[in-house]
Design a protein around this nucleic acid. Structure first.
Lengths: 132, 132
DNA sequence: TCCTAAGTTCAAAATCTATTGAACAATGAG
DNA sequence: CTCATTGTTCAATAGATTTTGAACTTAGGA
């Protein structure tokens, strides 16, 4: 089992993060992650669709991870994705929230609709509430 | 005398703006503009240096204008530049401030130092103090 | 008028990005 | 073991980005 390389909090760079989120596909992924956070379950790479070939999805997730926007945890053959909210907030206060709020407001304007995900039922062991 | 095309406030797009500011050179320009705002004088394109050839500066200013990040006012042969703070704030609340604050905090880390400007003495008619 | 300063536009080059399909690796199930 | 699932890596490609120098425009003096 491999552990993927992530930049440390201190290594996060502003232009890199902005550039990373400037891509509509990646912004859509991050928006989707943020929207899904309240559900409590974790999303896998494969939950996302509408981004083209599988290899393209891997490419964008790679970029999001290398940039430090998301964290990727390997478990079996699956990779669970989460937003690095605390790290981003510590380095760039208010930035992620402003971006997510703007993305949420513009959701129909962006190509965000192209990137959707099918939410998992109750795949992660730790996080499911009593009612579905 | 020409008037340059600017997107309207409503036409500002989040991915476009993020992508535009994801470039270190343009981020440096915008940071410089914001830093200079308190002085009260307007900056021209030519006040900036360290960005390479003149045509490259024109390229980046063109991009910033088309994206809606800056406004460019022509006066004679000079072009006066200003940040579109209100428009950006209206469309993406908190975004510009978060970016500028982060850029200011990371100022020595970024290549911002490469892009400097020589502030004008008292070129704009409305804003000059008594001291030279 | 002629000159200069400010900035643009164009074409070319070097580089980077996004996308795809095919082949590959790793894990868990039957 | 065998097989399907999950996702990666590779090579190729099409397109976008950044950068440069040279030629050009425009306005304001001397």
């Amino acid at each position: 089992m491999k552990i993927l390389a992530h930049p440390t909090r201190e290594q996060l760079e502003l232009p890199t993060v902005l550039d990373c989120l400037g891509d509509p596909t990646r912004l859509a992924i991050v928006h989707g992650l943020a929207q899904h956070e309240r559900v409590g379950t974790e999303l896998r790479c494969g939950n996302f669709s509408g981004v083209g070939a599988k290899s393209n999805l891997a490419y964008h997730f790679g970029r999001l991870r290398e940039t430090g926007v998301i964290r990727v945890r390997i478990e079996g053959t699956a990779r669970y994705i989460s937003l690095r909210r605390e790290d981003l907030e510590a380095r760039f206060p208010g930035l992620l929230d402003a971006i997510l709020a703007a993305a949420a407001r513009d959701v129909d304007r962006l190509a965000l609709a192209d990137c959707t995900f099918t939410a998992p039922a109750n795949e992660t062991p730790q996080a499911q509430s009593s009612r579905a």
